[in-house]
Simulated assay, not measured.
Amino acid sequence: MKIYDFEGFPNPARVRIALAEKGATDKMQFVHVDVLKGEHRLPGFLAMNPNATVPVLELGDGTTISECTAITEYIDHAFDGISLTGTTAKDRAVIHMMQCRAEQGVMDAVGTYFHHATPGLGALELYQNKEWGLKQRERAIAGMRYFDSVLATQPFAAGQHFSVADITLFVGLNFADFAKIELPADLPHLKAWRARMAQRPSMGG
């Protein structure tokens, strides 16, 4: 199996963390796609993922899977180890819900701010709307506040156990640092959770 990605970028980081949590990093061959040079827009890559985004998972039979949630779903069920997407119907539903909230309310909001409100991105962004980007910065901060309230009553983003929702939220906050969206000072529960997550070996601890 192959993962086409750009190491260090947010979405590839989510997949690499999932692989590390499952102890499956060595089961993958990583293929570098130089997004900064526009390789994600070349015909060969677009044939795998017409959305022109990394990462993309290529299976042994030639099937290609894009979108982090779908790739992580595959990884979670293909390899033994900790469950990242839940084992019961209730857990799977709650994790999926909180994963979406982390993705849309923090990760994607930060990404939209970065891509639309950061000048000089070149091949990374062919169209920018700064006003929209600044609006998404507000949304990202609102998402942080939401998860602070969630983490005031439970240890993980989706409840009592670590899941893909925690991966997405953690990477989203790291992306916010890179995009210079400061974590508000009055979010103690989110900050404490982040410090705990940073100690996990998969997340650099």
Rank of each mutant, 00 (worst) to 15 (best):
G159V: 02
M107N: 13
F170N: 01
G204V: 03
P50G: 07
P155N: 08
I167H: 02
R145P: 14
I17V: 13
L57D: 01
N49W: 12
R101C: 05
P201W: 09
A117R: 05
K90H: 09
R200S: 06
H32W: 06
R139S: 09
G105C: 04
T87F: 03
I17M: 11
G8R: 12
F175G: 11
K22V: 01
H32C: 03
F170H: 04
A192I: 00
L187T: 14
R41Q: 11
E39R: 14
D108Y: 03
K180H: 15
F156K: 01
T88Q: 09
Q128T: 08
R139T: 13
R14N: 10
V35N: 05
K22P: 14
A176N: 11
A185P: 00
K27D: 12
T87H: 10
G8D: 11
L187A: 07
E21D: 06
D148C: 05
I95E: 09
L151V: 08
H77Y: 01
F6N: 11
L124R: 14
R16Y: 00
V33T: 11
E103K: 01
Y127C: 07
L42R: 15
R137N: 10
A102I: 09
T53S: 10
Q160F: 13
E73Y: 06
T88F: 06
I181Y: 01
V54A: 04
D61P: 02
Q104Y: 12
